[in-house]
């Protein structure tokens, strides 16, 4: 925490940044520069951790980069929750105090459950993209799905949570495991121990995450500040409110859960349901056609790199 306070002091004081160009200095002297710096340090910590954890050539006997990266990524996840990132002086006290922590009118148990589930999802996602063995990748993805279904459950999406476990973790991941066992039964191959441009990819991910989180932070900063500020204009809100008034079945509280969802699916979106059913049928027929097509034996192994 002292490190972040020091960074905040560095970002807030004009002494350390006096040699910077004027535009950058003006940007950093804004009251939110410390928040931006903290968020960047957290995301950068996670990015360095992911970069260290990615498979690289010639490091199969060295395991310390993986451990160091795992420690860094875990620290980033913990910092996401514990580090206060102020959303501006106009924000309501206790609101948006940290980047990832629902300090809200919910009960604290909901907040803790949210953090545990989000930690499971994100940590399993990191382990999934850095696992050498594709079987382990699929299993970590199943854990991501379990965490995500818990998050769905926290958001009153009961049916979707059950469907995620049943369809995704029960069917799709198992199909993946079938294909892995069919195609690569020996586990991690040589190309699984190397990465394609790990530094550039991680930098791209860092930039994307910084832009997304920064946009969310920007929107949260301007929330509730007044009618005429930037963030208060929500074009979709009026139409959604109008629909929610005119049609009772659009409200989450109007019906028992699955009944309301079924009404919405099969009354409002019945054409989409039919279309998606036809799409699934076409996909099944196409999969049978593609996989059942015999490959000539003289062509097999043509591209093999031995």
């Amino acid at each position: 925490m002292k490190l972040f306070d020091w960074i905040l002091a560095q970002g807030g004081s004009s002494g350390g940044i006096s040699h910077l160009p004027p535009g950058l200095r003006d940007m950093l002297e804004q009251p939110h520069a410390g928040a931006i710096l903290r968020a960047l340090v957290i995301l950068g910590c996670g990015a360095v951790g992911v970069y260290l954890m990615l498979p690289r050539s010639g490091e199969t006997d060295k395991r310390w980069p993986r451990f160091l990266g795992g420690v860094l990524a875990t620290l980033a996840l913990v910092f996401l929750v514990t580090t206060p990132i102020p959303a501006g002086e106009s924000s309501i006290p206790g609101r948006g105090a940290t980047l990832l922590w629902p300090l809200d009118d919910q009960s604290p148990a909901t907040g803790y459950t949210f953090f545990i589930l989000a930690f499971i999802s994100l940590a399993s996602a990191v382990m999934m993209i850095t696992a050498r063995n594709p079987v382990y990748s699929a299993l970590w993805f199943a854990l991501v799905l379990l965490g995500n279904s818990g998050l769905f459950l926290l958001q009153r999406a009961d049916f979707l949570s059950a469907a995620t476990v049943i369809v995704y973790a029960g069917a799709i991941v198992v199909t993946f495991l079938f294909v892995i066992m069919l195609a690569q039964p020996t586990g991690a191959a040589a190309f699984d121990r190397r990465s394609r441009e790990p530094l550039l990819s991680t930098a791209t991910g860092l930039i994307l995450a910084a832009v997304l989180v920064g946009t969310l932070h920007y929107a949260a900063r301007h929330e509730g500040a007044g009618v005429n500020t930037v963030g208060s204009h929500r074009p979709a809100q009026e139409s959604i409110d109008r629909f929610a008034k005119t049609s009772k079945r659009l409200s989450l509280e109007s019906d028992p859960h699955v009944a309301g969802l079924g009404k919405t699916l099969f009354v409002d979106h019945v054409v989409s349901v039919e279309v998606i059913g036809v799409l699934l049928l076409a996909a099944v027929v196409g999969a049978v056609l593609i996989a059942g097509h015999p490959v000539a034996h003289e062509k097999a192994g043509h591209h093999a790199r031995q």
């Binding site: 992911v50 191959a189 190309f191 190397r194 394609r196 441009e197 790990p198």
Partner: peptide, 12 residues
């Protein structure tokens, strides 16, 4: 973002 990084990086 993690999915994007993995998609760009992994070769399997």
């Amino acid at each position: 973002t993690l999915g994007l990084v993995g998609f760009l990086t992994r070769r399997n």
